[in-house]
Amino acid sequence: MHPPTFDGRGDTNAAEDWIQGIEEIFSILKCTDQQKVRFAALKLTGEAKRWWNYEEVIREAKGTRVIVWAQFKHNFFDRFFSKADREARAREFINLVQGTMTVRQYAARFVELSRFATYLILDEERKTRKFEEGLNYRIYE
């Protein structure tokens, strides 16, 4: 597997896909948080690399050089996956129903969008209820 690079261009899906690709590698390598950040930073190019270099300068000036993976992702998404896009996906999740999708397609879309509205599905019971409520009436019954 070739680790993906990210140059900061493209749509928001490119940013999300890059994070997913990097995290797949992390799941295999069992990296620490700091190793994840260093590895991810090595795979940034172009505009994304300039952004990261600027982030490091700011943290160094504040005396906070260490950054954990969750904070890297948060900062990364703030820069390359706009809040408006994330909120639009959360609204899409809120309004998600099966409609003409197969159950498998609905389930895949549910999982994909659920990441943007975790505040709605704080536990498995709520997540299951939300999923079931979106199913076509015949299946739900």
Rank of each mutant, 00 (worst) to 15 (best):
R50I: 06
K30F: 08
D85L: 00
N13A: 06
L42E: 12
T64Q: 12
V57M: 14
E16N: 11
W69N: 02
G99W: 03
Q105W: 06
F26T: 07
I121A: 02
K30T: 12
D33E: 08
F116Y: 15
E56L: 01
A84Q: 09
Q71G: 01
H74T: 07
M101H: 08
F110Y: 06
F26R: 14
K43A: 08
K30Y: 08
T100E: 08
D17F: 06
L44W: 13
T102A: 01
A107F: 12
D123W: 07
R59K: 13
F76A: 02
S27I: 12
I19H: 07
L122S: 14
E24R: 15
Y106M: 04
L29G: 09
A15P: 13
F116N: 01
F26V: 09
Y54R: 14
D123E: 06
F93M: 00
Y106S: 05
L44F: 01
F110W: 03
V111H: 12
Y106C: 01
E60M: 01
I121V: 15
A15I: 02
G21V: 12
I94H: 10
D11Y: 09
V68H: 07
A40E: 07
D123C: 11
I22C: 04
L120F: 10
A48K: 07
A70W: 05
T12G: 03
T45P: 05
K30D: 06
Y54V: 01
N13E: 04
A108P: 03
R89C: 03
A41M: 08
R91K: 14
I25D: 04
I19L: 15
K73W: 09
F77Q: 04
S114L: 05
N95C: 11
W18S: 00
K43Q: 15
T32M: 12
R86S: 02
R109H: 13
T102E: 01
T118S: 01
I58P: 01
V68G: 09
L120C: 11
L29E: 14
D11H: 10
F76T: 07
V66Q: 15
F81Q: 11
S114N: 10
F80Q: 02
A107L: 02
F80D: 00
D85N: 13
Q98P: 00
A70K: 14
I121M: 02
E56M: 07
Y119Q: 10
G21R: 00
A90Y: 02
Y119G: 04
A61R: 14
F80V: 02
F93E: 00
L113Q: 11
R104H: 12
W51V: 04
R79E: 05
Q105E: 15
Q105M: 07
T64F: 06
T32I: 10
L120D: 02
F116L: 11
T45N: 12
N75M: 05
T32H: 10
N75K: 05
D17Q: 03
A41H: 12
Y106H: 10
E47D: 14
F81R: 03
R38F: 10
I22P: 08
I67C: 08
K49V: 00
